[in-house]
């Protein structure tokens, strides 16, 4: 009985962590290129509604996932054009993008309220995915495994490839990168598109896998958690994975503790634990080094215009 509960907790935990991990990983790459996009929540919602609309119309969740990436990229491009080409303020534009995403997703989704689809199923055959114990490892859907592969991929890309080095150079010192001939704006466009695709995918994980339906503001603020997570992880993919699963674990255990009737621990304490942890990590990091820069890319949030 208890192992069954444990396995179930793991399943819920992984599912709860995955969309945050995806969105945060995309944002990490964006921020590594020196751009701060606060519109994660808006991009997630656009991905969620587009994914649902396509999956509902075509009957294919696979196509839904692809559409979600596309919608995320499209939304991100609005941000990219405004901030990169027109050098608008990134913070204000990002916030506006979230408000825009909430509105446009609601508009598109109006015709899909009250509908449902078959949820995204596990990848592996039933022998593995429905095994009482092994399903903890093999019982997940494609997006979960994809998100883990992407963490590894992004980590290798940033640390081991020339392209990753260039991306980081653009984020650390855009003027120098420009001076030695790298196309700063184009690279940032690419990073923002990648961030949009992953945010869209993360959003679609809600409408296609977690709660296969469309309802306004379906992601309910997870985009903001993803943003906090990037800072929590000090812009490192490995730590991001850890952080996302920690957030997921706390969210799941909070509910399990309540269901099990554990009342001596105020559930509110568990609910605020991830945020307390973020504050604690930030404090420790800034005590550790006197610069107070917290490992943030040096050009984060600064507009760049080639002159």
């Amino acid at each position: 009985m208890t192992t069954a509960i444990l396995v179930s907790i793991v399943m819920t935990l992984v599912a709860a962590s995955t969309p945050i991990l995806l969105a945060a990983l995309g944002e990490l790459v964006v921020e590594k290129s020196g751009v701060l996009n606060l519109g994660v929540e808006g991009m997630m919602l656009c991905g969620a509604v587009a994914g649902f609309a396509v999956a509902f119309s075509t009957g294919s969740t696979g196509l839904g996932l692809v559409a979600a990436c596309g919608a995320g990229i499209a939304t991100a491009m609005v941000f990219a054009v405004l901030t990169l080409s027109l050098t608008a303020n990134q913070v204000a534009t990002g916030l506006a993008l979230t408000i825009f995403g909430v509105g446009v997703s609601s508009l598109i989704g109006a015709g899909f309220v009250g509908r449902t689809i078959t949820r995204l199923g596990p990848v592996f055959p039933a022998a593995l995915s429905e095994h009482p114990l092994l399903r903890a490892v093999f019982g997940h859907d494609i997006v979960v495994y994809l998100s883990l592969a992407l963490v590894l991929g992004v980590s290798l890309f940033l640390r081991r490839t020339r392209a990753g080095l260039i991306l980081r150079a653009v984020g650390e010192n855009d003027a120098s990168a420009h001076a030695i001939g790298y196309p700063v704006i184009a690279i940032r466009y690419g990073a923002i598109a990648f961030g949009g695709a992953l945010a869209g995918l993360g959003g679609a994980y809600f409408s296609l896998a977690l709660t296969p339906m469309w309802a306004d503001r379906l992601t309910a603020g997870r985009g903001w958690i993803a943003l906090a997570l990037v800072v929590f992880a000090a812009w490192k993919p490995g730590r991001l994975l850890l952080g996302a699963y920690l957030f997921g674990a706390v969210m799941t255990l909070e509910l399990q503790a309540k269901a099990a009737g554990i009342t001596w621990l105020a559930p509110e304490l568990l609910a605020m634990a991830p945020y307390l942890a973020t504050v604690a990590v930030l404090t420790m990091m800034s005590i550790g080094r006197k610069t107070g820069r917290l490992d943030a890319p040096a050009c984060l949030g600064k507009p760049f215009s080639a002159s």
């Binding site: 709860a16 809600f206 977690l210 309910a220 799941t252």
Partner: peptide
């Protein structure tokens, strides 16, 4: 009747996870 306080009127993913936790505990 086991109650989970979600502390929100609206958060579909959390509502679903709460239901799963309750089912895990025998509901």
């Amino acid at each position: 009747t086991k109650v989970i306080w979600a502390s929100t009127w609206y958060d579909p993913a959390k509502e679903a996870d709460a239901a799963k936790a309750l089912i895990d505990q025998g509901a």
